[in-house]
Simulated assay, not measured.
Amino acid sequence: MIEPFRVAVPQAALDDLAGRLARTRWPDEIDGAGWDYGFPLARLKELAERWRTGYDWRAHEARLNELPHFTTEIDGQRLHFVHVRSARPNALPLILTHGWPGSFLEFLDVIGPLSRDFHLVVPSIPGYGFSGPTHERGWDVGRVARAWAELMRRLGYERYGAQGGDFGSGISLALGAAAPDRVVGVHVNYLPTPPDPEADVTLSASDEARLDQVRRLMANRPPYQALQAATPQTLGYALTDSPVGQLAWIAERFAHWTDPRSPVDDDRLLTDVSLYWLTATAASSARLHRESARRSEACPVPVGVAVFPRDITRSVRPLAELRYDIRHWSEHERGGHFAAMEVPEPFAADVREFFLGLTGGRCAGLTPACLRPEDVQTSHPE
């Protein structure tokens, strides 16, 4: 069963958040430390004070409720998703998947532009936000992908595309592997291409520089990744009890992974952090790092790649082509890891170019229910 959902955080939860922020016990900081020891104290105090006194969750909640939200249960897990149908009845459906420490909020600025050409399904990963928490082991990238396939089936979509970044990239590629007869293509804005000493390819100096960056990252695993992969429960106690702890944990990733030329607005950042805090999903979202340690199987459907200059790593095309059927490759001038938030217009244009190029703008094969004019946003065939 698919049911309408409305975002409605109890006022008691917002009052508790304000009280905890007011009672924050701050650590000291070495003079002139900057970023050498972690997130700078002055900047975090600035964000925390904005969160406590200037940020208005209710205003952002009202804007979220302008979108059609739904929930359903798949494989014993509650799933939340936004479903926006295009005015074009024969539009190609797309499922857009976020990553960590993002959320479905990453796509807010591209829903409007993309819905002119596509039916959009924007779910929250199990364990994240309104899809959280998870209650059992095994919710890895592959299992999420299989849940997405079932979700799209329930919505009546026989053929569709998938897009994602961060974990959303892995989930989208796994969806292509799990349902190759249904997925017309996968577009990603993050595609790790680790060094492969056995690969018989010629690399440019630019490609070698990108691989050097990957080698440095592999040799010095980021602390957040190591902790979430090893002890997400232990970490969850701190982040679920301290809003400033949750703020610092997420804000540090946004600071390091965004392009300084396309920063994410403080209120958009605080909305994302609030979603983690208000749903108490710090631990369950972190578990995806532990569950998804193994490498996923190859994706047999056409793949499009958008590379943004300030991402964690930048993909190397000759290596990507050894594993995937690359049909589209773009190198962008601005943007980082959260491309849909940072540079929504180039992001949306890239997604549109790839999928319309695959289908020629034609219907990709919907069930009759999806082609009815009266089948609008609030109607979902089982």
Rank of each mutant, 00 (worst) to 15 (best):
G127D: 05
D266T: 07
P4R: 02
G99V: 00
V305H: 01
T202N: 09
G19K: 11
H289S: 10
E198A: 14
R182L: 10
Y190V: 15
E29L: 04
Q11I: 13
D266C: 08
R261T: 13
T134Y: 07
P309Q: 02
R210F: 08
E61P: 04
G335Q: 00
M218H: 08
P195M: 03
S330E: 12
M341C: 03
W100Y: 11
P260Y: 09
G176H: 08
A230W: 12
L105W: 13
F354M: 08
L275S: 10
I171V: 12
A149G: 15
V343K: 00
S172D: 08
I95K: 06
W100A: 09
Y276H: 14
A349W: 06
F39M: 09
G129S: 06
E208V: 13
L322H: 05
P195A: 08
H135N: 14
F347I: 03
L155Q: 11
H380M: 13
R362H: 12
A177M: 05
F338L: 00
P93T: 05
R210L: 07
K45W: 08
T24G: 05
H83E: 06
T378N: 14
S274R: 08
S206R: 15
M1K: 15
S379H: 14
D196W: 03
D272L: 13
F167H: 14
E252S: 06
V82P: 08
P302G: 00
S172G: 04
V343H: 00
A59T: 10
E333P: 09
R287A: 13
D267G: 03
R294N: 15
A255W: 05
W26P: 01
Y237T: 05
S115W: 10
R294P: 14
Q233R: 12
M1T: 14
L235Q: 09
Q163L: 09
G129Y: 07
L120E: 14
A48T: 00
V188I: 00
A12Y: 05
